[in-house]
């Protein structure tokens, strides 16, 4: 499953970069995420509640930031397992100046297994896209409201 998107932020790349590295802001904006606990350099543990079609449940997982090139790009490696199965994904995030702000381009590829794939596959891509949209819209709104 491959998904991609571009999100516009009303701030220069450097400011958006810091927002994207702010674990509190991230935890606040990932739907169903309670907290990010650092377990190593650029490595966090988290719990996520996800509901896809008839399947819902908690995932325990890790989030890792890699290949950081501030303020241009980095890689996000996510893996989680839980009652409904597992999800794994890698996203490449690129920041580029866009007019007065920043365009954040996300290219992600992910796969899922177990019940969540068997029963929820048809909706999985839609749910993943929705979660991604909500995440970046949430971050962008934090910036707008000055919380970032």
């Amino acid at each position: 499953m491959d998904i991609s998107g571009t999100y516009l932020f009303n701030a220069p790349p450097r400011q958006v970069w810091s927002l994207l590295m702010d674990t509190t802001a991230i935890a606040r904006c990932v739907p169903g995420c309670r907290e990010l606990r650092p377990v190593g350099p650029d490595r966090y543990e988290t719990e996520l509640s996800v509901a896809v079609a008839a399947i819902s449940g908690d995932f325990k997982g890790t989030i890792e930031l890699a290949d950081k090139l501030p303020p241009q790009s980095y890689k996000l490696i996510v893996s989680g397992t839980g009652r409904p199965g597992f999800v794994r994904g890698t996203a490449t995030i690129t920041l580029a100046p866009h007019e007065s702000g920043t365009a954040v381009q996300v290219a992600a590829s992910a796969n899922a297994g177990g019940l969540i794939a068997r029963v929820g596959q048809r909706l999985l891509e839609g749910v993943a896209r929705m979660m991604m949209d909500r995440f970046y819209q949430c971050l962008a709104s934090q910036l707008d409201s000055g919380q970032g």
């Binding site: 079609a53 008839a54 796969n111 177990g114 794939a117 068997r118 029963v119 596959q121 048809r122």
Partner: peptide, 14 residues
């Protein structure tokens, strides 16, 4: 099945 071997038609929904 998808390429990773997940059965996509794994319930009466699909």
């Amino acid at each position: 099945y998808d390429q990773s071997g997940q059965l996509l038609t794994g319930s009466f929904l699909d």
